[in-house]
Amino acid sequence: MSHFILKRIFSALVGLLGVISLVFFLIHMIPGDPIDVMLGESALTADRESLRQGLGLHLPLYEQWWNYMTALAHADFGQSLFSGRPILDLLLERMPATLHLSITAVAIAIIIALPLGLLAATRQHSIYDYGSMGFALFGMSIPNFWMGPLLILVGALWLGWFPVSGRQGWNAVILPALTLGTAMAAILARMIRSSLLETLGEDFLRTARAKGLSSIHTIVIHALPNALLPVLTLLGLQLGGLLGGAVITETVFAWPGLGLLMIEAIQQRDYPVVQAAVLCISMTYIVVNLLTDLLYAWLDPRINWQNP
């Protein structure tokens, strides 16, 4: 098992290295001079050159890349061009809000998707099935930058139950998490349904029913744990979509997380911060997928450790 874990961690590290390099090169290949952004186009040539030297931007690209990687290895993300603060501080400041939002959204998604998927699979071709799957299709098609404003209109402006935006008060997280969680709930519900339908056709479930177990007992104890295994992998992968969507949702609700930090940095053309925010979110995604894989392997003893 340790062999498998090491192998998986190694491939996650390779992925991380690739992600960092890709972002670095893409940002540097983009036309436009960061010096112009910082000093304005009317700055003196001497000033521009000294700043360029100071930031190491006169070096060839591969040397800049190496310097960036060594700095990252020391947890040094550089400084914000806009505020001059160390980027690491900015990231640490914003990270808890994004985690708070994402975890609540995942929880909401599971709370919505589990009953829907269960109902749809156990009553296949019934009105419950069509209803749940219709909801799922809606959830997949409703963009979060529309759902967010709608929820604000109803929940905050008309009913006044929740704050319009920001992160003040315990209930501020509900609307953004609902916005973010709905799309995930839709995909999860579909997955739970198809996975459960497949499991319900297995021999061991016929046996369970034949020995007289109640249908609730068969489904909850025998079918569900088996059906949820493939769902777990999907949950990890879907988190990527969730983290991407969090950028938009955080903007809608002025939620002070990494996504909003990234959008603010884009508006201020603060590229080192954009780069760091993308890295930070991608790293979270890679780590979560690594953990999902490990959890999956631990939960399913049938997985061959030598050659999974």
Binding site: V19, G241, G244, I248, I266
Partner: peptide
Amino acid sequence: DIMLAFPGLLLAIALAGAL
């Protein structure tokens, strides 16, 4: 594998923002 290690929309937002 590396491309899939990104949340897709996130990379698109960063690229469009930088461009």
